[in-house]
Amino acid sequence: MRWAHVGLNCRDQRATEEFYTRWFGFHRARAVPVGDGEILFLRNGDAHLELFPAPGESAAPSALADGPAQPGAVRHIAFQTDSVDELLAAMGEIAHVTLGPLDFDEVLDGWRTVWLRDPDGVVVEVSQGYRDQEAVETAERKINV
C-alpha cells in the first residue's frame, strides 16, 4: 500500500494551483477534463494534490489555530522546510498565518512550526526540524524507525 493523494475542493483552481506550486514545490502532473471543467493533479515527489472545481463559498471554517477539531474534518496538511522564517519572509503578505510561528524546543531541539491558510481556507502546517523518534513503543509491538 502506498499513499496516493489529498483531494482539495477549490473555489479558484488556478489560485490554489499557484499557491502550492509557488510555495510548496508542486508542479502540474495532469489535467483531466470533466464536464465543463477539469480536475488538476499536482505533484511534488511522491506527494500529490488533486484539485477539484467547487464554486461557491468555502465550507472550511474560518481557519483558526491549527485547523478544525471536528471529527471527520481534516485538521491540516503539513510540509517540512529548512526555515519557517525564510518561507514567511518570502511569502510576505500572502502568508495568512493562523497560528505561530511556535517553537517546540522542549520536545525536540530546533522544531519550529507555523500554520497558514491556503486560498480556500485549508490550514497548512509548515515545520522545520521535526524528526521521528528512533523507536516508538505501541501496545502490540516495538517499531524501529
Rank of each mutant, 00 (worst) to 15 (best):
V97T: 12
L108R: 15
T16P: 02
Q70C: 06
V6G: 07
W115I: 08
A69P: 01
P101L: 01
E134F: 04
P61V: 06
L88G: 01
R28S: 14
V136A: 04
D12N: 13
V34I: 15
H27T: 14
M91F: 04
T138V: 13
V124D: 03
G37E: 15
F41R: 08
D46S: 11
A54E: 12
R141K: 14
D132S: 11
G121F: 03
D82T: 14
F41L: 14
L87M: 12
I94F: 01
H5P: 04
F24H: 07
G45S: 12
F52I: 06
R112Q: 04
L99G: 00
S62E: 14
P101R: 00
R22Y: 02
E125N: 04
L40R: 13
A90F: 05
I39K: 05
A63Q: 07
A63I: 04
G45C: 10
T81F: 05
A135K: 11
G7L: 03
R28E: 15
A47H: 10
A29G: 10
V84M: 00
L8C: 00
V124H: 03
V74M: 15
E106R: 10
R131D: 03
A59C: 08
L108S: 09
D36P: 13
H5Q: 13
P119T: 01
R141F: 07
I39L: 09
R131P: 00
F26D: 03
R28L: 11
D109F: 05
L49E: 01
V107S: 09
D120L: 01
S83T: 15
Y130N: 03
W111A: 03
L40A: 10
R141H: 11
N144G: 14
T16F: 02
V34P: 06
E125T: 05
D120I: 05
I94R: 09
L49W: 03
A4P: 00
V97C: 04
P101G: 02
D132F: 08
H27F: 08
D105A: 13
E93I: 00
